[in-house]
Write a protein that binds this DNA or RNA. Structure first.
Lengths: 246, 246
DNA sequence: GGATAATACTGGTAACAACCACATGATGTC
DNA sequence: GACATCATGTGGTTGTTACCAGTATTATCC
């Protein structure tokens, strides 16, 4: 059994503990619906306080790996197909998590004044100038997966060029590098719509086919709206997953 | 300022604190992006330990009411239209949260052997017998909102009758009362589909109209699958909301 | 004036102690 | 045998203390 305290390790103990426990679960050592050692036992095993133990277990419970029962113990959750969803991910991350290779074809990239509805959702003043507008065809394993339209709020006067975006792949890492903007939270709505002729053509499906429309407003670490993203997903190729808790 | 300790109150202090703080936010006393008192100050104000303060703030942060910035303070999140979604709710609760009066028309209610796919999602053995099958037209303010098909796993030999369900309205409260089953977690998938002629007729829309298809498997407090619910929502009347975090 | 260092805040991590609430199985009683 | 009681183990709540790690302001030095 590995000693938990790794003094050279900057990461907090409770976080090291979650990694250890998660590995004991995914390795099959701890089976679904079986109890893990009690909190008092874990204290001895890993030589950390119950405070730390509980902090680690709390996190794993929130991530869906464990569940508690008062008076009985803490148990391993049965493994679900989907990981902890309702996590904020980029299109690329989402695809890779599904085992699909993401790709894109940039149709449009320019500075533009956002439509009124977008401006309001981005909480920008009425006289606000241009934002970065991008329209992209999103691919999964080379096949059209969705049509993405996005508006990005950038610090005054700054912009992004097409080359930079194509090189980076993920726009999130690019925004973080250049402008220190970290997406932290998002509000998303989903609805079903029918493909217009233009959309159908780009997505290589029949007009009138069903599409899953996702509209997302992403907020930075300062809780300021930083982007408005609209994605039209091909219904035959994309399902949305959510994990709900009471 | 109300003294927090209410000795007659069964609910834990940290939970009482969340209620107090949430009210100070919703009342407008604490404004968005403004700092709340520091954790040390709150200790004095409410005469509880920092442990308790942090436990309360943790909960409010997870619910999206507050956000923290290391070294700077804890701040009020801007109020979004939707509250903390990605919460597990029944159709009725969902409707009421949207300010719509829920209703239903039971089309079918019987014990039946579930289809193979449903049986697998419910993690039932191949030779498992009948489960409760219900097909309902779901109404919002009296107008068709969606078509719900559900399969419920009941303790051996037991069942529910039509009258009981119609009286209770929410099947969750009924299951909890009679069988002590508490829905605790759920996996949900969403996709866009087109209405078949039968569905269109029931939902009073044109055949070929877009529908939002939600498939949900709900798990009890023991992490056993307890129901499989499929809802076809009219796309013109229903949007799905999700709050995502990093 | 402008960079730098000290300092005084903020939240984050951690240990230790004590007690409460719930579940379960052993024990005792009738 | 049926049932109440108790002991013990589990997670849940709370307090106290200490120190670490970021942030912002102030004082200091050059």
């Amino acid at each position: 059994m590995p000693a938990i305290v790794d003094p050279n390790d900057y990461t907090p103990k409770y976080y090291q503990l979650t990694t250890i426990l998660r590995e004991r679960i995914s390795s099959g050592e701890l089976l679904p619906h079986q109890p893990i050692p009690s909190e008092r036992q874990l204290e001895d095993i890993y030589s950390v306080s119950r405070t730390t133990i509980r902090q680690a277990i709390d996190l794993l419970v929130r991530q869906g790996f464990l569940y508690r029962e008062h008076g009985r113990g803490t148990f391993v959750s049965p493994q679900k197909l989907q990981k902890g969803i309702s996590e904020l991910t980029s299109f690329s991350e989402d695809m890779r998590a599904r085992g699909i290779e993401p790709g894109q074809k940039i149709l449009e990239l320019e500075m533009a004044v956002p439509p009124e509805e977008v401006r309001q959702r981005l909480e920008l003043p009425a006289d606000h100038g241009e934002v970065l507008f991008i329209e992209r065809l999103r691919l999964g394993d080379g096949v059209p997966m969705g049509l993405m339209t996005s508006y990005h709020v950038l610090p005054d006067g700054l912009t992004l060029d097409r080359e930079g975006l194509e090189a980076a792949g993920s726009i999130y890492s690019l925004l973080q590098e250049k402008f220190h903007l970290i997406p932290t939270e998002a509000d998303e709505t989903l609805e079903a719509v029918l493909a217009t002729p233009r959309e159908a053509g780009l997505l290589q499906i029949a007009a009138g086919s069903p599409l899953l429309l996702s509209v997302r407003v992403t907020y930075s670490q300062y809780r300021r709206a930083m982007e408005y993203v609209k994605i039209l997903y091909r219904a035959d190729r994309y399902q949305y997953f959510a994990k709900l808790t009471r």
